[in-house]
Write a protein that binds this DNA or RNA. Sequence first.
DNA 1: CGAGTATAGGTGCACGTGCACCTATGTGTG
DNA 2: CACACATAGGTGCACGTGCACCTATACTCG
Lengths: 180, 180
Amino acid sequence: MELKHAILGLLSIRSASGYDLGRAFAGSVAHFWHADRSQIYRTLDRLSAAGAITTEVVRQDGKPDRKVHSLTEAGREELTDWLSSPLEVEHSKEPFLARLFFAALIGREGVERLLNERYREVNESLAELASITIKADDMTGLLQAATLRNGLIHAKAELEWLRETRQVLGIAEPPESSGE
Amino acid sequence: MELKHAILGLLSIRSASGYDLGRAFAGSVAHFWHADRSQIYRTLDRLSAAGAITTEVVRQDGKPDRKVHSLTEAGREELTDWLSSPLEVEHSKEPFLARLFFAALIGREGVERLLNERYREVNESLAELASITIKADDMTGLLQAATLRNGLIHAKAELEWLRETRQVLGIAEPPESSGE
DNA sequence: CGAGTATAGGTGCACGTGCACCTATGTGTG
DNA sequence: CACACATAGGTGCACGTGCACCTATACTCG
């Protein structure tokens, strides 16, 4: 279960509330993991029951109380064990490729629409990634920057592949409609 | 639900048994989707109940009976509807990046091990993909070839990124141990 | 004054997924 | 002769995931 470890990882950087973690999954780590808030709260419950985290209630004025969670030694050990364990085999699931593979049924026009839509989406997520800056002044920063660069290079490779694929299929370049 | 559509897609190419589909998911379409056999049989049940496929029992000698499934008109319509629908937003989940992001805790040696292991795995899957040949003499073939090329370019981009990342982190090239 | 949004923490529930396991037969390996 | 493996089709079950929904307060916008 990756979410558990992702949460432990985030808490290893700094203590956080469930709500904070929710923002992290919607932002800074969104390019490699996603989690619903309801899921985060449930996972925090399990981590707490397992003794991997401790919780401190912080009162605020004008805002609801925060439950700030911190790693315990057991939690840190769980995290390093996971980081040191062999990589699990990844069963890649790529919905877009699944469509394209069977897209002959919707004809050249359908395929063209599919490729253009994909181009827009990837281009958009590329712009989002490109707007992020990371202070890479220590190991943590360097690794976070490397993770971000991974997203960037795959997005660029995907766009290049889309252009090539359009050529192979004899589909014209779109007129960069509303580009930017 | 993608599996349903992937199965409809495979059946749009040719009729097949659940067992055949299992081999497809372990082979020809493995680079973009994965499915357990138990899951395939259950999905076929649902598709049958929904009238999207018909089933014919084919007796064989020396081997168990086969239940060969074929697309109905309703099934073909379901498939083209899906192919024509807007792309769903993809919540990417990349376990490897999740590890790397938090890998500062296991030190430079740990990170080195992680990157090397990743390199081996990607290199292996690249070799698998590169060994596949597809007859691209019609639209279906061209699209399948494009899908395959997508896997290839991302694998190559990943290897290149791994080499760059090793340099950025000041990790030496591995001695191409058992290079192949 | 009501609507919407941010903050904060949840519950309920349906469902897809994946692992373990089962039946049955034929063929090949040690 | 026992064992594993391919063929073929399943069942049971635990569990993670995601969507909808709920409570409560404070602030802003029209």
